[in-house]
């Protein structure tokens, strides 16, 4: 979310990659998220990936076995052996090639330097060393390792930021792989003729749709639902082709004003969407789209409603029925509501 620190990538020699980034957190926290499987599951790997740890023995000579699950549905089993563990400043390992694994052979090391105490700041330098320049090239070509490493660092930055922030304002995040070049995917989001085709419901196209693609400009549309029609409006805040789009969203009316949600009066009036388009760092070539949303200028009640709206996946059908039952019971005279 913040853009204050950037990941820098350099190649001091033709068989190396070096990534460097500063983080506004203490060094101990970075060491922890880098070595604890519960944390690694949440950030290790490029955009759209998740990681499952099978076993970890965090000592020199010990192994970490894990599988990275790509957004294109491909699984990448991995086995690394720790060669240096000096908490909290130096971690090094080698990648072990196992029969049946994807071929990849390299050494890596992470250096964690605390460069400030108040506020805490830590610099991480991560170096990957391949046996030859050809090996590095192959990993870059086959897996998009360069993009992948930067995306991984960006996910690390977001993850450590979440550790220090409040859980209540956790944004809604949805990530998906598209087997299409990034420019085309970006165009699909920013050209009226494309938006009209896919942004509408499955059967009917958008019954109204105008796009004024500039900062402060709007996308204004009418959508037909089985239960009724609704108007929506985006206002663009950032347009960075082909990487990033930022816009506020609201329910609207035919004149383009701001309207309350038709399905829930407690839904926030406006929410911010950040859409990023990143090259997929994996075997299939394509683009990973990541949508992140959170309410703007919303009351606590509206933020709670928003949160409930996207967390409700986990509640299932039974939870929905119970909620409805309780809601209806609230409309009963008090004598009967007791056991609602």
């Amino acid at each position: 979310m913040t853009r204050e620190h950037q990941t820098e990538m350099t190649a001091p020699t033709d068989r190396e990659f070096v990534l460097m980034r500063e983080f506004d957190v203490p060094r101990d926290l970075l060491w922890k998220v880098w070595t604890d499987p519960a944390h690694l599951a949440k950030w290790w790997g490029p955009t759209g990936f998740s990681t499952t740890t099978h076993s970890q023995d965090l000592r020199e000579g010990g192994s970490w076995r894990f599988t990275m699950h790509g957004p294109d549905g491909h699984d990448y089993p991995n086995h690394i052996r720790y060669t240096t563990i000096r908490e909290p400043e130096h971690l090094a390992y080698e990648h072990v090639e196992m029969p049946g694994d994807e071929p990849a052979c390299f050494q890596a090391e992470g250096l964690f330097e605390q460069i400030g105490d108040n506020p805490p700041r830590t610099r991480v330098t991560f170096r990957m060393i391949f046996p030859t320049a050809e090996d590095r090239e192959r990993i870059v070509k086959t897996y998009g390792a360069g993009d992948g490493a930067i995306q991984t660092f960006n996910r690390l930055a977001e993850h450590v930021k979440r550790q220090t922030g409040s859980d209540a304002d956790k944004p809604f995040v949805l990530t998906r792989f598209f087997e299409a070049p990034r420019q085309l995917v970006y165009d699909a989001w920013t050209r009226q003729e494309h938006l009209a085709k896919w942004f509408g419901p499955p059967v009917v196209t958008l019954s109204h749709c105008t796009l004024d693609l500039r900062v402060g400009g709007t996308f204004h549309y009418e959508m037909k639902f089985p239960g009724g029609d609704h108007w929506g409006r985006w206002v663009f805040r950032e347009i960075s082709p082909p990487e990033r789009l930022v816009f506020t969203c609201c329910f609207s009316d035919e004149h383009g004003g701001v309207a309350r949600s038709f399905f829930d009066q407690r839904w926030p009036l406006e929410w911010l969407n950040v859409v990023t388009f990143e090259p997929h760092a994996g075997l299939k070539k394509g683009t990973v789209v990541r949508l992140e949303s959170w309410p703007v200028n919303a009351s606590q009640g509206e933020r709670d409603t928003f949160r409930a709206g996207h967390d409700s996946m986990t509640q299932g059908w039974g939870g929905t029925l119970d909620k409805l039952d309780a809601f209806l019971a609230g409309r009963l005279p008090s004598s009967a509501a007791r056991s609602g």
Binding site: F172, W198, L291, G309, S312
Partner: peptide, 19 residues
């Protein structure tokens, strides 16, 4: 209740088909 997530999952599905 599932509106927001459902909405975007369906849109992404439609975008996938369209691309």
């Amino acid at each position: 209740t599932n509106g927001f997530r459902r909405f975007w999952e369906e849109r992404f599905e439609a975008l996938d088909n369209y691309l």
